[in-house]
Nucleic acid binder design. Structure first.
Lengths: 212, 212, 212, 212
DNA sequence: TATGAATGAGCGTTCATTCAT
DNA sequence: AATGAATGAACGCTCATTCAT
């Protein structure tokens, strides 16, 4: 803390890259990657354009760094919840969706996935990174959660892989309608009610067939 | 294969705008709007850069023209199917999803919605156009289809507005995983099986509650 | 008149070049040469862009044709008035200025001289043409009018060449203030009053010195 | 001769805008605004095209900056000379014209007014700027100089407003003939002799009428 | 570490001119 | 005689990147 002999006007240098990334997410999310200039990011982060290149070798590296930074926590939280569960998957699904809603509904955490979606085509490295670090870990986990649910007779005999789409899809659609097109239900982007309605249908739909 | 390699005759004026749009979809879809130059589009369509401006006043007008051309047919088909139906909505939903799958699963028809999704942030006019011409016509139609289904006792007492997300979401998610991240189930982008699995759950989930 | 066997829908072809020039003056005057496109001129004249090139080999040829057409009459009228006069030049000067004011004050005749002034730098051929056909005929004529006036003792012993500037300059300045900067005297661009005031001073100033 | 051939040191930031403007006047004067490209200006000033935009946000801003830089000094000098004078205006007029001749006869100072004249039509902001900063200050000053001369009986009863045209016009015409059309008197653009001849006539013409 | 002046390649757009019809 | 589709060169402007300081 006080070991530095002349700390008076020292800037916390290690924090800089993060500040730059913060500025970048904000601007990329608001205007898109292509429409955001390095100059804008630099000003937003409180330094000069040239200094950005001290921390990141190119504009695209910003995007990558950005995604990388945001991605690990989400996936980790998700996986740890599902990984080793045995039994009726429905309670875990409820927990899982509520956690995601909690994460995304609150803050600018939504910005990164949105960004990935938009830039995935022009920047396949980004899509790949997201796939590697999030999707290819979370989807198989969900898939095997469902598989053991089917095998244990806890739920109807559905295709575990495809059912993952039925679990996550309505939430994705809800967010996309709201975020991209500004279409919200009459009482606003109410994630709780969406999930409640969704789970009512989903859980009834997953109920094992009573009469064999 | 199916298109003239180098058309001998110039001056087929009426066909040109469409050819330009064809080139534009292809390139926009492959590289994104911002990363595609007008020059590229022109060469792809077999004309000079300047000639593109004979048919479209700006690059953005290409995007708009593109979306406009692709959008009306989809929405029209959808609406006409749903509009005046009375009774258990489930058969119509099956028809509806199959139609959409037929339209999107086949060709480059998917390119335009994908494009809209990506450019929506930087080009809000595009998002607005899509909303006006597709979403704001299709979603209310679906919503009231569900509403009368609930009121007629044909399905469980769900929120009609939110249930629309449960109907369409899984399809959206399936396409997005495949198209954006290259994630497909073990037997490929099999839209029929996806829909079948989805509808099994959905229809069981919508079954009116038997007791009380 | 009736010699043509099928004159029904015949356009008076010989009039076309003039119509094109009419359109060109109007637009060049309003927007400048560089800011006016051949397309605009063509539309204004009621034909297609390509057809303009039937009558004029290039855009610059339009400007030249324009000036040429407007120039001869002005100079001719001026010269014929001055050429052979002997005696006190003052009555001729009055006549001359009134004629010019009549020509310029009325119509779009001002447009061409204004155009020449503006484009003279970038298009020296234009300046040269104007010089050849107007200035180098009118100025020497005025100069010798003044010279014989001095030599005959009708006016003060002034420099005939420089006095031409004193005769024409105030009118030029008046028009330029009005046309370029929108600065007009309190009662509008009143050419008669301007000339009256100007001539009062000029003629008194030219009065031969009474003493010796 | 008087400027560094190839400056060894980059980064003389404060001088650059002025250098760019210098290059711009030269080229605009020689070729006109529209016919001069930013690239030309940049090369002339020894920088790259992109660098010009470091100092000026647009090509038009160059023109404006140019005019602005040249305009204030002229007007200031003029006004300060005339403003509060009482009595026979003729001595002040002589001083005033000599000062203007001194300013314009020497250097490239003429380039800017010429430029204003030419671009006034296509760039009304420029005309307006010149009007605001020069004409609307100098002309009223001259007008009231004349008015008090008339009222004090120092000069003939002329219209003060219109007489301003008689004072300045011959000089304007002399410069225009020379600069635009290359027409000069036999002994060159001799501003002193022009002014002498002009004032002889003007002052005699302004002499109060002797016999009432 | 930090700057910001400087660059150069590229983009969207315009337009005078040509030419098959 | 007349068209208008087509071109290509040029222009104003932007911006990611570099580098001397």
């Amino acid at each position: 803390m006080t070991s530095d002999p002349k700390p008076k006007f020292r800037r916390r240098a290690e924090a800089r890259p993060d500040e730059v990334l913060d500025a970048a997410v904000a601007l990329f999310a608001a205007q898109g990657y292509a429409a955001t200039s390095v100059e804008q990011i630099a000003r937003h982060a409180g330094l000069s354009k040239g200094s950005v290149y001290l921390y990141f070798p190119s504009k695209k590296a910003l995007l990558e760094g950005l995604v990388h930074r945001a991605v690990a926590p989400i996936a980790d939280a998700a996986i740890s919840m599902i990984a080793t569960y045995r039994g009726d998957p429905r309670p875990v699904i409820r927990q899982f969706l509520n956690m995601i809603a909690g994460k995304l509904g609150s803050e600018a955490a939504l910005a990164v996935p949105k960004l990935v979606l938009r830039e995935a085509v022009s920047a396949p490295e980004i899509a790949q990174m997201y796939r590697d670090e999030v999707l290819d870990r979370a989807i198989p986990a969900l898939t095997s959660l469902m598989r053991q649910g089917v095998e244990g007779g806890h739920i109807r005999k559905v295709d575990p892989e495809l059912t993952v789409r039925s679990i996550m899809g309505p939430l994705l659609m809800h967010l996309m309608l709201a975020e991209v097109f500004g279409i919200e239900p009459s009482d606003g982007l109410n994630l709780e009610r969406l999930i409640e309605n969704h789970l009512t249908i989903l859980f009834a739909g997953l109920e094992p067939e009573t009469n064999p």
